[in-house]
């Protein structure tokens, strides 16, 4: 369901729905490749409900946000202004970015943190057509042996992991489903 006014489409009960969405995000980030379902957000097109829930849960006036490519629509800007309040910036200054894999390129534009503060790096919310536990093989913290996730490509994530402890963290969203790939995960 898409909403016509910027006032709709947020969490009905923000405290508890954000708590549940965060647990899904945390499980996803702690177990790379693990796919979670989040509900409660109905942002304007083209943003997926999962990406909307992630923004409602993690972003506010303290987190500069970059809307990449065609998802930077007036309707989405209005919705974000009302529900999230994040300042909209370019890729170099953002804490969070949202868009399709192609629209988010090049990855070199984003902050990967500093040696003293590797946490000061961007988190990219990547909208995918489909999300499945197949494709690239993953190994690293959070994964018992190996896991698999349908990543849009491999080379970019391998280059990202090579920068550890610096690097970008990724949240993949498709419909109401999401998965994550932190910088610590090795893509085989």
């Amino acid at each position: 369901m898409q909403t016509s006014t910027p006032l709709g489409g947020g969490f009905d009960t923000p405290a508890t729905q954000a708590a549940m969405a965060f647990r899904a995000l945390m499980e996803a980030m702690a177990r790379p490749g693990h796919i979670e379902t989040v509900t409660g957000a109905t942002p304007p097109a083209p943003l997926s409900p999962a990406a909307g829930a992630a923004l409602l849960t993690l972003c506010d006036a303290e987190t500069p946000l970059y809307l990449a490519g065609p998802c930077d629509t007036p309707a989405l800007r209005d919705w974000l202004a009302f529900h999230v309040g994040a300042p909209l910036v370019g890729p170099a200054d953002c804490a969070f970015a949202v868009g399709t894999w192609a629209d988010l390129q090049p990855l070199t534009d984003y902050s990967i943190g500093t040696a003293s503060y590797p946490d000061r790096s961007a988190t990219l919310i990547v909208e995918l057509d489909d999300l499945g536990a197949d494709g690239a093989v993953l190994r690293g913290p959070g994964i018992k042996d190996t896991a698999a996730l349908s990543l849009p490509e491999k080379a970019a994530f391998q280059a990202n992991t090579a920068q550890f402890p610096l690097g970008l963290d990724f949240i993949f969203t498709s419909g109401q489903r999401l998965a994550a790939l932190p910088r610590s995960t090795e893509v085989l």
Binding site: P14, A15, T16, A18, A19, F22, L25, M26, M29, A30, T57, L58, C59, D60, E62, T63, A95, Y117, P118, D119, S121, T123, P141, G142, F164, P165, D169, P182, R183, S184
Partner: peptide
Amino acid sequence: NFAYLDEQTKRMIRRAILKGLAIPGYQVP
């Protein structure tokens, strides 16, 4: 509020937790 803290504080802590999980063992301020 649910679980005492206000939502903005929780978001700030939640962001720190996600970065902490992404960089195991690193202390996130």
